[in-house]
């Protein structure tokens, strides 16, 4: 974890409520895709935890969905705005455990960390299948970006306006050779993916309302097979076998 100032370089609107932000700053604390940053906003007491979409040595890319006043202020920041950021939080995905036929499964804004993950897996010679789910075609984003990584790309929309009608699980059932998932999305989606019989193992990224974001306050603890874990510090990635659904939902 590192606390430092980042400068907003640019913001690009992707859909009605989703934006891409690029910030420049010291990213040396970021060690794995799936980690997150916790951003201080003027006038807001708690920081806003945002998943890292991708990063370089000097820059950080975030995909932000406006879900409340804080995220609305964040996407309205003008280029040049300095933001106090805690970076390199959480454990992140471990692509080395993903086997020969991994599928990256994302739902809505949950696709964000899968982009940096997919790029690093491609760079390491892995060939992940990417399955992305959205409500409808107008809510879809980052399709070209994922396609340009050279990944096999499967799309599902709930209304069938793009790709398969249904959920990301319907796409994954069509690629039965994929037996390992790296997954990020809303809780019902995580649960549905987790229950797919074709999966031998997988990594699931959780979200939670957080106090600190670095493991001190116990605000985001959830029950697991191995006792309570802090989503912010012991997660956000939990492994398939340790997840306990009945008390999460």
């Amino acid at each position: 974890m590192k606390q430092s100032l980042f400068t907003l370089e640019h913001t690009r609107q992707l859909t009605d409520d989703t934006y891409e932000l690029v910030l420049s700053g010291d990213t040396s604390a970021i060690t794995a895709p799936g980690q997150f940053v916790n951003i201080q906003l003027p006038g807001r007491f708690l920081r806003r935890p945002i998943s890292i979409c991708n990063w370089t040595d000097q820059a950080l890319m975030l995909l932000v969905k406006v879900v409340g006043d804080g995220t609305r202020e964040l996407v309205r920041c003008v280029p040049g705005t300095e933001l106090d950021v805690l970076s390199g939080l959480g454990n992140g995905f471990d692509p080395a455990r993903a086997g020969a036929h991994p599928v990256l499964a994302g739902g809505g804004i949950g696709i964000a960390p899968l982009y940096g993950l997919a790029q690093r897996m491609r760079d390491a010679g892995q060939a992940p299948t990417v399955a992305l789910g959205f409500r409808s075609a107008k809510d879809a984003f980052y399709l070209e970006e994922f396609a340009s990584l050279g990944c096999r790309l499967l799309i599902a929309t709930e209304d069938g306006s793009l790709g398969t009608r249904g959920f990301v699980t319907d796409c994954i059932r069509n690629v039965p050779e994929c037996d390992y998932v790296l997954c990020c999305g809303p809780l019902p989606m995580l649960k549905a993916v987790h229950s797919l019989p074709q999966l031998t193992d997988g990594q699931f990224s959780f979200e939670a309302r957080m106090g600190c974001g670095f493991g001190a306050c116990m605000g985001c603890s959830i029950p697991t097979r191995d006792g309570y874990k802090r989503v912010c510090k012991d997660g956000p990635i939990l492994y398939k076998e340790e997840i306990v659904w009945r008390t999460c939902l």
Partner: peptide, 11 residues
Amino acid sequence: LGNPQPRIAET
């Protein structure tokens, strides 16, 4: 074990 989620709210 503490309380169920969510445990935190901003004000």
